[in-house]
């Protein structure tokens, strides 16, 4: 029983560490920032998840009860890794990318939101209402 757990834990540690390594290797090798975003946000998150599953199994075999705290870290990483990737991509688009030449055209009229915004619909202000003689219906 203990041997089976040992092999399972060892496999998860090796796979997790391998994916962490591959994710960071992508940071070194890939040519542009946008392609470098793919490595950390996916492979590293999955690698840390693998190490956390190994930790859950290890402490489950050791103490006989399931500890859920590692699932919390995995859950948090899976939710926040896409958000940070999106934010870094937006900041890069704002600083370095020219929307006319490199991005595909947006089908709507207003363009991509990092470069252009929709004109806001404003509620009728008090001055314009009283000037035109409208009254609030009671």
């Amino acid at each position: 029983m203990h041997d089976r757990f040992e092999i399972l834990i060892a496999i998860h540690i090796v796979i997790g560490a391998f994916f962490v390594f591959v994710g960071s290797f992508g940071l070194v090798k890939l040519p542009s920032l946008m392609s470098r975003l793919h490595g950390p946000s996916k492979a590293t998150t999955l690698g840390v998840g693998g190490c956390l599953i190994a930790s859950m199994l290890h402490f489950g075999a050791l103490e006989g009860r399931v500890s859920i705290q590692e699932m919390l870290i995995t859950f948090f990483l899976f939710i926040t890794a896409p958000v940070t990737a999106h934010f870094i991509a937006k900041a890069h688009l704002h600083a370095e990318v020219d929307p006319e030449s490199e991005l595909p055209p947006d089908e709507g009229r207003y363009g991509w939101s990092t470069f252009a915004t929709m004109p806001e619909v404003r509620m009728a202000s008090r001055e314009s209402r009283s000037a035109s003689g409208d009254r609030l219906e009671s």
Partner: peptide, 22 residues
């Protein structure tokens, strides 16, 4: 660029989490 460095710092912290777990 600056964003390369921000990405590197964020990835460093996630790798440190893996190190702490191990």
């Amino acid at each position: 660029t600056v964003m390369d460095r921000v990405l590197a710092v964020d990835t460093m912290v996630v790798n440190t989490i893996a190190l702490i777990i191990l």
